[in-house]
């Protein structure tokens, strides 16, 4: 469970102040998949960074039920943030290496993840030898490596080609259902938000604030037929209209 109480964030001081997030209250239950959408600059990244404790809130607080764990959250950054001096496999294994998982076990896990994100054959490559999308896929694999109970993803698929993106969407959905992780996904695609989420949070810009949340009431597992479901199509068009209003 993630409990967000009166959470707000203001960057800078004096004249240069930017209110990135107005006070926000939300409770996200264990096993939920929350999609977050909103125009650029509305504080989506800020929200995730606050939850991950990468940023100190200006007011309010975030309570994680996983707070006692060594790593309460997993995070996929907006840009891949692979370590350029480590190969793809070493990057993916990094969270395991740094938490004392035996090498053999870790290698098995890496092999599985490499296949999952479709990077087979690139295990020994260095990040600079990969395309932007491939790097992002490696970063996703790394975030999944030590099986975090809460997974925060900041536009993880924006640099990935459409076909791979759909595959990864389906994989993510499957992983979520299988493991019961709590997932927060920031995305710019309303289809993706509706397709994956059990709830969609829509944020509005300047100052960043939560506009509405939708409970997505589509049957699981999601798949090709979800995309033809009238309820899905309705939700997508409603979200799209909302986004249009905000950006115009």
């Amino acid at each position: 469970m993630i409990k967000i109480e009166k959470l707000s964030k203001t960057y800078g001081q004096g004249d240069g102040q930017v209110v990135a997030l107005e006070p926000l209250d939300q409770t996200i239950n264990e096993g939920e998949f929350v999609s977050i959408i909103g125009p650029s600059g509305c504080g989506k990244s800020t929200l995730l960074r606050l939850i991950a404790n990468l940023e100190a809130p200006t007011s309010g607080r975030v309570t994680l039920e996983t707070a006692g764990l060594k790593r309460p959250v997993g995070f996929v950054f907006q840009d891949a943030v692979l370590l350029p001096w480590k190969s793809v496999a070493d990057n993916i294994r990094f969270p395991l290496d740094t938490s004392g998982v035996p090498r053999k076990l870790a290698d098995e896990k890496v092999k599985e993840l490499v296949e999952l994100v479709g990077l087979k054959g690139f295990e020994k490559s260095l990040p600079k030898q990969l395309s932007g999308g491939m790097r992002q896929r490696a970063a996703i694999a790394r975030a999944l490596a030590d099986d975090p109970p809460i997974l925060l993803m900041d536009e993880p698929f924006s640099a990935v080609d459409l076909l791979t993106r759909e595959t990864l969407n389906d994989e993510l959905s499957r992983i979520w259902q299988k493991t019961g992780k709590t997932i927060l996904l920031v995305t710019h695609s309303v289809e993706e938000a509706a397709y994956l989420g059990s709830r969609v949070m829509v944020m509005s810009p300047r100052p960043g604030r939560l506009k509405v949340t939708y409970e997505v009431d589509l049957p699981l597992p999601r798949g090709e037929c979800t995309k033809r479901d009238p309820k899905f199509l309705d939700l997508v068009s409603e979200l799209r209209t909302l986004m249009r209003e905000m950006t115009s």
């Binding site: 991950a52 840009d79 943030v81 370590l83 001096w85 969270p95 740094t98």
Partner: peptide, 29 residues
Amino acid sequence: MNKSYSDLSVVLRLSPWQRFWHIELPAAI
């Protein structure tokens, strides 16, 4: 050093030694 690297070490809750050995030292090489 790229600020994202220190974000990564926060997210992974690296120990000071791990942070030095895996991130800061190679980044500064």
